[in-house]
C-alpha cells in the first residue's frame, strides 16, 4: 500500500523508548506526573527558557490546521486541547490502553505516546474524520449494526485500530482480528461484541 512508506514502517516499531528519546531530543523534561500540558501560552511562565512555542501545520482529517505546539506536547493533547477533537480519549496517557489510538499515515498509533512535532507533514486521522457527514464509515456502521460497546470510552480507539488493521489485512480470521486490535483495552470487557463488530466491519470494508 502506498501509505505504508518507510516512515510508517518505523512508526509501527514505535516504542516507549523512542518516545522518551524524542522528548529528550526536544529538550524537554520528562515529568513523572502523567497528564501534563500547557495551554495556548497564557501562562506567564511560558517565556521560561526551553519552553519556546512553535507554530506548525498539521494535516488532520484532510484539513491543514495551524497550531501552537510545545516541544514536549503529545499528539493526544494537541488534538484534544488545541484542535477541539475530543473524540480521541486519554485512558492512561502511557501507551497501555489504546483509547487514544489515531491513524498516522494510515497506521494505528497511540496519540498519547507520540509528540505532535513528529507528525508534521503526516496525515492524521481521528475518529471525527471517519464519517462523511451523517454517513458512517463502514467500520462505524458495522459497530452500530452490532450495537457495539458498552460505556464506549474505548470505542474511538478501537474503531481506529479496526480501520487501520483492516487496511493491512482486509480478510482476517477471527483470531487475526483479535490480535490486530489487541492493543486496545475495553474495561467493560465487551470483547465478544467488539470482535463480532470487527468481523462485520471487515465484511463491510470488502464490499465498499
Amino acid at each position: 500500500m502506498e501509505t505504508l512508506d518507510l516512515r510508517s514502517q518505523a512508526e509501527r516499531s514505535f516504542t516507549r523508548r523512542t518516545f522518551i528519546k524524542g522528548v529528550i531530543a526536544a529538550g524537554a523534561v520528562v515529568s513523572s506526573s502523567a497528564y501534563l500540558f500547557r495551554t495556548n501560552g497564557s501562562s506567564a511562565s511560558a517565556q521560561a527558557p526551553g519552553s519556546v512555542e512553535r507554530l506548525i501545520t498539521l494535516r488532520v482529517n484532510g484539513q491543514e490546521r495551524r497550531v501552537d505546539v510545545l516541544k514536549q506536547e503529545t499528539l493526544a493533547t494537541t488534538l484534544r486541547y488545541k484542535l477541539g477533537l475530543t473524540g480521541t480519549k486519554i485512558g492512561c496517557d502511557r501507551g497501555d490502553c489504546g483509547a487514544c489510538t489515531v491513524l498516522v499515515g494510515g497506521v494505528p498509533t497511540y496519540a498519547c505516546s507520540l509528540l505532535t512535532h513528529q507528525v508534521r507533514g503526516r496525515e492524521v486521522t481521528t475518529i471525527e474524520g471517519l464519517a462523511n457527514g451523517d454517513q458512517l464509515h463502514p467500520v462505524q456502521q458495522a459497530v452500530y449494526d452490532e450495537g457495539g460497546f458498552q460505556c464506549a470510552f474505548c470505542a474511538p480507539g478501537f474503531i481506529m485500530s479496526m480501520v487501520g488493521f483492516l487496511q493491512q489485512n482486509p480478510s482476517p480470521t477471527i483470531d487475526e482480528m483479535a490480535s490486530g486490535i489487541s492493543g486496545n483495552i475495553c474495561r467493560c470487557a465487551d470483547y465478544p461484541k467488539i470482535l463480532k463488530s470487527a468481523m462485520r466491519a471487515a465484511e463491510n470494508m470488502r464490499t465498499v
Binding site: R80, G84, L85, T86, G87, T88, K89, I90, T126, I127, E128, L130, A131, L136, Q140, V143, Y144, D145, G147, G148, F149, A152, F153, A155, P156, I159
Partner: peptide, 23 residues
C-alpha cells in the same frame, strides 16, 4: 427487542461528551 441505543452514534463518532471533553 434488540434496539440500538440512541446514543450509540455519538459514542462511535467521537461526539459523545465525557467529563474531560467539556470546555
Amino acid at each position: 427487542q434488540d434496539i440500538v441505543s440512541r446514543d450509540l452514534v455519538a459514542k462511535i463518532t467521537g461526539r459523545a461528551k465525557y467529563a474531560e471533553d467539556y470546555r
